[in-house]
Design a protein around this nucleic acid. Structure first.
Lengths: 173, 173
DNA sequence: TATTGTTATACTCTATAACTATA
DNA sequence: TATAGTTATAGAGTATAACAATA
């Protein structure tokens, strides 16, 4: 295998990127240069998403709800009378994968599947009283712990601007 | 199982959220109300991240590089002489999972593992000539297709603001 | 023939324990 | 004893094909 580069950093270091002036040293993490990675939107997007989800899960430990479960409960509550296909596809969940997810929520008695009278193939989804109670508590935790902390770190104006740009990406990109 | 809510949307619809004035109708997706999901940063973060990664992969089809593989090649190139643990941990990849990833890159002759002379336990990572060629082409594709399109959709100023907020979240949140 | 929910299955990511060879 | 790379493994998440019931 051909390896023309030597192990000497001074010999093998690539030329500094044009957009990195000499007085603005390149971003590092633990002494390792991040290179163009600091400018790659997808990379920061992924890292930020993992952090935010971790915090969400931490805020929800008492209720034991994942982000996906929370979004499903929210959508069922807001859209009574919808079936599995409609709720799943809205969230980008494939129908086969939605089955186990609903089994879990129904097993915890947070929601129920009811055969539709109109179309006996489909299952109408609705929250149980317990499901509505949990959802209400979850919303409160999200607002007072999770989103409140995001507001602290970003500031309200930045938070709103960020949300709109992310929505733009999800919609138009 | 107790289900107090009826199937009638008018009866069971929850009160409109306080922050949604009557003249700003709630966001919908295919006729389904998104509820508080439109205001949940983590949700938009995830959807945006999936879109951006999909586009990245599409732009890279000719080189067959995933975002993770691209970031590994970039970091190896920028940090000659580093071992697997250092590169992997910088990217948030667990050492056991980094093995198969490197097997793939080394199998394609894009990089090599070399036993360190100082510490014969560790493998120094470096790109091959082929690896450097592929990386250069990948960078060009990312800049001219992927990031260029992000710039179109967001505008340069917004793109920069978004990147900084995401970096803030990844760092301080 | 088409659609809903479902099963089976597979592939990727991620996470942990434990082994080996070195230190 | 501690660390680097590795193996094995298990769990999520995601993807497709195909089946039964129903339209």
């Amino acid at each position: 295998m051909t390896v023309s580069r030597t192990a000497d950093p001074n010999v093998s270091k690539p030329a500094r990127a044009a957009r990195e002036p000499a007085d603005a040293p390149e971003a590092e993490a633990g002494g390792i240069r991040m290179g163009e990675l600091s400018e790659l939107l997808g990379y920061s997007l992924k890292r930020a998403q993992l952090r935010v989800f971790d915090d969400f899960i931490r805020c929800m430990t008492s209720l034991n709800l994942t982000p996906a479960q929370f979004s499903v409960l929210l959508l069922i509550d807001r859209n009574p009378g919808r079936n599995q296909t409609e709720i799943a596809s809205t969230l980008g969940i494939l129908r086969p994968n939605f089955v186990a997810m609903l089994d879990g929520l129904e097993g915890r008695e947070l929601c129920v599947r009811v055969r539709s009278a109109n179309d006996r193939r489909s299952h109408i989804l609705m929250l149980t009283d317990k499901g509505r109670t949990i959802l209400a508590r979850a919303k409160k935790l999200v607002a007072t712990r999770h989103e409140a902390r995001l507001n602290e770190v970003l500031g309200p104006a930045n938070r709103a601007a960020l949300l709109e740009m992310l929505a733009t990406l999800a919609r138009d990109f």
